[in-house]
Design a protein around this nucleic acid. Structure first.
Length: 561
RNA sequence: GUCCCAGUAGCUCAGUCGGAUAGAGCAUACGCCUUCUAAGCGUACGGUCGGGGGUUCGAAUCCCUCCUGGGACGCCA
């Protein structure tokens, strides 16, 4: 908004379009230099004149009531006349439409996210897909998309053959009834331990999965038990995270849709026999072959992902299909999308893997097989407990402490994940996840709550009703905050374009920092009613922005804390 | 061996159309609550932007190459 405005005003002098001018403008390294800077090197080349003298001439030539220009070396620095424009911007930022979703695009996005495995605890590893997917749903909605979240539950596959085989060998019915997921995990871990000594167990597991796929009643009954127990536990966690899904369609849902996939591949004549299995060769795309049917005739995840893609495209009507899945599956998705392309699906290009870095715990890759998992619920519990302790210490009279502690604890964990670029690998450290100061979710929440109490107080002393005084917004701190607030729509657009929730998280941190600086430098509830009015309106706009940005990330913004 | 991702301050990370003295947070050391929430603010300390070439008026950013770490490479997902 700022660069666009300044670009438009100075474009006539630099003889470029206003878009081109705005594009070349940059933010000066030191705010004291101004609000925008135009490097004159490129102009110098075109005009065959030194950049310094061009900058100097422009500074001389530009006469605009809102601008003050100065040449510094090869740069033309432009400062806005703060008092003259502040009210206009404040009003812009206050308008409800400013932070409202942009107009509908008439495009539907289907997001594949979360996708925990049945019969295993919801580990910290699934946090990323869940919160990134959820944030993307809010951000893309704000960017005008119609978004559908699908929880692609891992409720099918050879792993269930393993569970069934393990249950039949060592299952303790009573333990399973009491603590289904812990007991399941123990069975799963034991299976892999025993299978190292006795490889025949693997064959047995595959046989059980084949039976399950063919509808064997004993296998199906066990499968239903595991699915029900898991869903119940998952729901509890999703409630805490504030995550919901438009669809919960696990892999099993596609069980009866696999044959159709194989038929399509056959019809396209791209299925080949290889070592008893059936594959699609992708050599000319420099990809390994995509395995479609295993040598025992059962399906594999690529087959399921193809069926899933068809369903999301043809039945759910997705214009874009997003897969928020770990980066380690990059090759798999490239294979699947390439196969779609070879089937003549022109929409294959609208499929996109949104990878995120692997989460390790204390430097080690998590492994369900070895029982090396950190349960998300334990982490949330620890975070909430600490939040509770902090509130007890800092604000003992806070009503509704439990609910606030929940919002802060969970907010710390969620925000802590989202503020990082999603592609980087994460080494999970509890101490990091439950931190409350510095660049954290609670810092943003705290800033928001602080403003809300300030606003409440202003009503009590009936401040802020006077006409606002523009000069109150012209101080360095107020001005920096106001400028930042104008950047909200741009931040959301960038986050949507890059599918990067971290952009919103960083933006929220910047706003919080700018507000706190402002708050410390100046008294908001000033004696002069006109000054107080302007500052209060700025503060309210900041709080609203923080609340909305946090909402995009799926983090709550308590009124008090 | 091939492919993908990453390497920026002691630690965790921003820095995406190449631009002015490379920025935060944490940690460390100081300072600031008789006025709006100190979960805050400020000051100091701290960097061969993995190494080496190249392109450019200008490179953390683009190109080449090497090194290091992580991941993936058909019957798990």
């Amino acid at each position: 908004m700022i660069m666009e405005t300044i670009g438009e005003w100075i474009a006539p002098y630099v003889q470029l379009t206003k878009e081109e001018t705005a594009r070349r403008l940059e933010t000066p390294p030191d705010p004291a230099l101004g609000d925008a800077a135009l490097p004159c090197f490129e102009l110098a080349r075109a005009l065959r004149e030194s950049p310094q003298s061009i900058a100097a001439k422009l500074a001389e030539a530009i006469l605009h009531p809102m601008l003050e220009c100065r040449a510094v070396g090869a740069y033309l620095n432009v400062a806005l006349r703060r008092e003259r424009i502040a009210m206009q911007w404040l009003e812009a930022v206050e308008a409800p439409a400013f932070r409202a979703p942009s107009s509908p695009r008439g495009q539907r996005v289907v997001i594949d996210m979360s996708s925990p495995n049945i019969a295993k605890p919801f580990g910290i590893g699934h946090l990323r897909s869940t919160v990134i997917g959820n944030a993307l749903r809010h951000i893309l909605t704000a960017d005008g998309y119609d978004v559908v979240r699908v929880n692609h539950l891992g409720d099918w596959g050879t792993q269930f053959g393993k569970m069934i085989a393990a249950y039949r060998a060592w299952g303790d019915t009573e333990a399973l009834r009491r603590r289904p997921l812990e007991a399941s995990l123990e069975l799963y871990v034991r299976f892999h331990e025993e299978a190292e000594r006795d490889p025949r167990l693997e064959d047995e597991a595959r046989a059980w999965f084949a039976k399950l796929e063919r509808g064997d009643e004993e296998a199906a009954a066990l499968w239903r038990f595991f699915v029900e127990a898991s869903r119940k536990e998952f729901r509890r966690i999703y409630d805490r995270l504030g995550v919901a899904f438009e669809y919960e369609l696990g892999e099993s849902f596609y069980n009866d849709k696999m044959e159709a996939v194989v038929e399509r591949l056959q019809a396209a004549n791209i299925l080949e026999e290889s070592d008893g299995a059936r594959v699609v060769r992708l050599d000319d795309a420099s990809l390994p072959p995509c395995l479609i049917v295993k040598s025992d005739g059962s399906s594999i995840y690529a087959t399921r992902d193809l069926a899933t893609a068809f369903y999301r495209r043809e039945t759910l009507g997705g214009d874009r299909l997003l897969y928020v899945v770990g980066a380690e599956q990059a090759v798999h998705f490239r294979q699947v999308f390439e196969v779609l392309k070879r089937l003549g699906c022109e929409w294959a290009d609208a499929c996109e893997h949104v990878p995120f870095g692997l989460m390790r715990v204390e430097g080690k890759k998590m492994s369900t097989r070895r029982g090396r998992v950190v349960k998300l619920e334990d982490v949330l519990g620890e975070a909430v407990e600490r939040a509770n302790a902090v509130i007890a210490e800092k604000n003992p009279n806070l009503p509704d402490r439990e609910r606030t502690a929940e919002a802060v604890g969970v907010g710390a964990v969620v925000f802590g994940d989202l503020k990082h670029d999603r592609e980087g690998a994460v080494d999970f450290r509890l101490e990091e996840a439950v931190r409350f100061d510095g660049e954290t979710g609670p810092y943003v929440q705290y800033t928001h709550a602080r403003i809300r109490t300030l606003l409440a107080k202003s009503e009590a002393v009936s401040a802020g009703s006077a006409a606002a005084k523009p000069s109150a917004l012209a101080t360095d701190e107020a001005w920096a905050l106001l400028k930042l607030l104008t950047g909200y729509p741009a931040a959301v657009r960038e986050a949507a374009a890059r599918l990067a929730p971290s952009v919103v998280a960083r933006y929220a941190l910047d706003v919080a920092k700018a507000f706190n600086r402002f708050y410390h430098a100046e008294r908001v509830l000033a004696d002069d009613p006109a000054e107080a009015a302007a500052k209060l309106r700025l503060a309210r706009a900041a709080a609203d922005t923080l609340r909305d940005a946090l909402a995009l990330l799926g983090v709550q913004a308590p009124e008090r804390m």
